[in-house]
Design a binder for these strands. Structure first.
Lengths: 147, 147
DNA sequence: TTGCTCCTCACGTCACGTGAGGTGGC
DNA sequence: TTGCTCCTCACGTCACGTGAGGTGGC
């Protein structure tokens, strides 16, 4: 797939994808000679979608995102090692530990965001409650005639 | 309160506050002669805290935030009109309608964000579940000796 | 008077947007 | 060959960060 299709598929712009490649956040698809078209796989699309979602939802900078991306890259390597028949059980246990550590970190960021969102929502709901109260007072003080 | 204290209190920077004033998002506290110190009230602090929270949590641009701010400004005016003894009951009803419309709009943005966050979380949890599964498989295949 | 905080430019930076001018594949 | 999408500069923009040089209040 070419860069335009990738952008459409993950809901971003061509410029953003090129920029992420520029700052080393995204590998430039496969290696290519200067001026040649960039090509991407469905796997690249998954990866990018993931990054954009983390950035938008968790509100982290591209620098912080780079760390997450490094985690994801490491994850891919570890996954391969895990699958290799030659890998010892002890080593496999450590790989699983590492996977969990990465996931826990992301889950904690999600939890933190959710807590903030919950508080905002409860405040908005409380305000709406007060508006309803006023409305009830108005009804009690001067009921509207039925038509 | 002066700008430094305001910044500390709402968790932002002096520069950001000045910038928001520059683009007309924030009234510059009370009117002042050029070069004089800006002063703010606790009410200004509330307002700014609100704006920053909406921006960070809902991920909206300062342009969109300006609309919300306009809503908030309108709200302050309407609130005063509501309190005025001369305001008719019918008018008060319409003011309450307006308050609710504004709150509903913000609540919907919150709901949308929450849905996205929920999906991200469920995917992370599912991944963690798969890791746990692998771990169980390892234990079954080659149990670790008790020490 | 000394510190601290404030002020106004004004240039720098991050994360892209937006052409300009040119090349590559169905 | 015509369209479309792609390419590489490179300058513009948004939302601030970061000094430079100077003034104001406890």
């Amino acid at each position: 797939m070419r860069i335009g299709e990738l952008a459409r598929e993950v809901g971003t712009t061509v410029r953003t994808i090129r920029y992420y490649e520029e700052i080393g956040l995204l590998a430039g698809g496969t290696e290519r000679v200067a001026g040649a078209h960039r090509t991407y796989t469905e796997h690249d699309a998954e990866h990018l979608r993931e990054l954009i979602r983390l950035k938008e939802l968790l509100g982290i900078s591209l620098d912080e995102l780079r760390e997450v991306a490094a985690d994801e890259g490491a994850r891919a390597l570890l996954r391969e090692e895990f699958r290799d028949d030659g890998t010892s059980v002890a080593r496999r246990r450590r790989i699983l530990d590492e996977f969990e550590r990465i996931l826990e970190r992301q889950l904690e960021l999600v939890a933190r965001r959710r807590a903030q969102l919950d508080q905002l929502e409860s405040e908005l709901l409380e305000r709406r409650g007060r508006v309803e109260l006023r409305r009830a007072e108005l009804r009690a003080a001067s009921p509207r005639r039925r038509t």
